[in-house]
Design a protein around this nucleic acid. Structure first.
Lengths: 410, 410
DNA sequence: AGTGATACGTTGCCAGAGTCAACAAATCAT
DNA sequence: ATGATTTGTTGACTCTGGCAACGTATCACT
């Protein structure tokens, strides 16, 4: 329970304004005045400080059709960026995402085999090194990592990433040492919920559930009472391992009858007669919608019914406003939204399900990059007055081979 | 996204101090200084304001064995109270709970049959009326109601309380009109979690799950990321209706195979050969522990295994620090804690279950009164500067029959 | 075009809250 | 009794947001 003093007050207000323009998009000063309830002069002073720190930019007019003096538009800067990293089985993806929401760059480096943590770091460093000249024009806040597995929130230790074959890999520390930048890492699904919550299907929601179906399982995340649920150690959101059936079918963790064991993309592909390697999310959805095979329909119905058990459980316990489905779960939902709705309704309390919307995820392939960048931005959003040694980090990166990280000043 | 101005700052700091002494018990000024990080002089001023408002009292010294000038002890007032109300099938319980945590009074009014909402209000008013002289010495903040059913958080409308047979009863409005006091109502289980969180087995926890087993079902509540989860409309925490089995056994809401359908107190009593009416929670626990009947053991094992399914699901999704079990679930747990632990471990991700403690609820019969009072105190804790017209309310109460509530000033 | 209305940024002054430093007070240790 | 230590108290200070008057930029109507 921290007390609040004068400095905190300023910080908070700066933070609130920066959050507003970052998450809500550009806004006029007048709008900020109304949204925050602060005085015009105060907004003026706060915006001025943010401009001076290079965090926001003021664009003039904007074709306004209102009477009165036009209000300058305040927008989050394009030049303040976070690096986003997403290691996967067959590729490392690095993104350069601006505070304004723009994804400046997105580089996918395909790997022959699943990379080790050290390889992932090396590849990231080499990609970033190639971008040096471009990056030198930006202020780099830090690196956000979306890991397909369980990550300890405190230090970015990857506890267990089954698909990558990583166990207790100190990815966060390795990356920080190699780049000199602050690194934050989290589970990919929980970053998906962050992205969808601020920029996608969950905008403005305080209670939402997000489930993502990937090739290797089902993950998810949740927002409860406006707070992203991390749990005791950041492992919350593992909807895939919730039990939904009495069958003996086991999932990747060896637990029987779970959502992940019953609802799989592979089973859908098999029913459709498609190959996993050549089927992305959109193709799958189109194929499912186009199919009139009774086998496919039966499989879809079976999976929807199991999905409903998990969703109903979550509805009863969390009484959310919206359930967002991503990946192949979105395709599954698209085939027969009514069936899913009815099944969830049948298995949940009427009052709790009342008003719950089931919606497909809106953000596509940039989802994880945006989520990961958001994670890195969080420190800045929390304290816009924080000094950032971005130039340093970059030079450190260039000299990485020659100088040991420990010898850098600071 | 509200901005913070000077007044808010003061309010926040007052709020933080009041919360600290209310929830953490009495503390010296020096301790408050350390806890909040605020300046000594600031703490002095803030405490002085709280004293002046009658919300806290300063007791002198306290046998301290430290060197230095002794610091006055700041304690929440005994004279600032909330009324707590808990309507049940066979009784109405009214409590007078002080901000200090003391339960001044607890009056149980047995009813022959399940009371209607109007009857509950009438009984409450008459009980409060009898306490008039005692209450006149107190400052009454408001009324908190713990309802065994679904309550809309915004206005205290009881949507559905199956055991009382209430549907859409505007209990909150009725009580407010009859007493002139602010009324807040919530589900009894979610108030249980509040009470346990602040004063019981969940002290200091940011992520906890609470399940309570009552004679008529299983309810619960949860705290996620330090925030009590209410959900979209305050219906969160209905663990009883989560599906745990493929059986056709239906629960009170007509859903098959749920926790509430499989895990019941009646089944335990039947196995033990006991009568519901003459068995309270303690008796049940003792009987279960003493029994060596294989029938009883089998039933306990069966129920524990189903309970484990629900808990494991919650563990996977929420990654809590502690699971608190109340009511007959506490007794069930006491019989074979290891079995439950092992079963939950087997059904949840190792990393997510790692470090989760399963503990019995600590607060006994005052649980709901404390939780309900806490609900009523919340407004005061949020804004200690709020003016309260307590004297008014009391006189209004006495004159209730003669004067219509609308004609009261303010 | 000219004029008024409207909306908004700017400026200088003010009030309130927390900080700071010096001092006083109350205890323990020697 | 003296000093060390911890803490409350007091008044000067700083910083932040509020406020009101003023200036400015647009729209709408004549």
């Amino acid at each position: 329970m921290q007390g609040t003093n004068h400095d905190d007050l300023r910080r908070r207000n700066l933070s609130i304004i920066l959050r507003l323009v970052h998450r809500g998009g550009a806004a006029s000063r007048a709008q900020l005045t109304r949204l925050t309830g602060l005085n015009r002069s105060t907004i003026g002073a706060l915006v001025a400080e943010l401009v001076e720190r290079g965090l926001v930019e003021e664009r003039m007019p904007d074709p306004t059709r209102l009477a009165g003096r036009p209000s300058p538009i305040v927008a989050a800067s394009d030049r303040v960026v976070a690096l986003a990293l997403n290691p996967e089985i067959d590729a490392i993806t690095v993104g350069v995402v601006a505070l304004s929401g723009v994804v400046h760059r997105r580089i996918r480096f395909a790997t022959r085999s699943s990379p080790t943590a050290a390889e992932a770091v090396a590849i990231t460093v080499s990609i970033v090194d190639k971008l040096r000249s471009e990056l030198s024009e930006y202020s780099i806040i830090g690196i956000g990592v979306a890991v397909p597995g369980l990550v300890r929130a405190s230090d970015g230790l990857v506890r267990h990433a089954p698909h990558l074959g990583w166990v207790d890999e100190p990815l966060g520390d390795l990356l920080a040492a190699a780049t000199g930048l602050p690194v934050v890492a989290a589970n990919d699904a929980s970053l998906g919920v962050t992205a969808e919550r601020y920029f996608g299907a969950g905008q403005g929601m305080t209670d939402l559930i997000y489930l993502n179906g990937g090739s290797s399982g089902i993950g998810g995340g949740l927002v409860v009472g406006g707070v992203a649920a991390g749990g005791r150690a950041g492992y919350a959101g593992e909807f895939g391992h919730v039990r939904v059936s009495a069958s003996g079918q086991k999932d990747s963790a060896g637990i029987a009858g779970t959502l992940e064991a019953e609802v799989t993309r592979d089973a859908l592909l098999e029913a459709l007669g498609l190959r996993a390697s050549e089927t992305d999310a959109d193709t799958l959805e189109r194929a499912l919608l186009a199919s009139d095979s009774p086998v496919v329909h039966a499989e879809v119905a079976r999976q929807l019914d199991f999905l409903a058990v998990a969703l109903a459980g979550a509805v009863n316990v969390l009484n959310p406003q919206v359930i967002v489905l991503g990946g192949f779960l979105s395709a599954l939902h698209a085939v027969d939204p009514d069936r899913l709705s009815r099944a969830v309704a049948a298995l949940s309390l009427g009052t709790a399900f009342d008003g719950v919307r089931i919606a497909p995820a809106l953000l596509g392939s940039n989802l994880l990059l945006i989520g990961a960048a958001e994670l890195a931005f969080e420190a800045l959003l929390l304290d816009p007055q924080l000094d950032r040694g971005n130039t340093f980090a970059l030079s450190a990166l260039g000299a990485r081979a020659a100088v040991s990280p420990a010898s850098h000043p600071r």
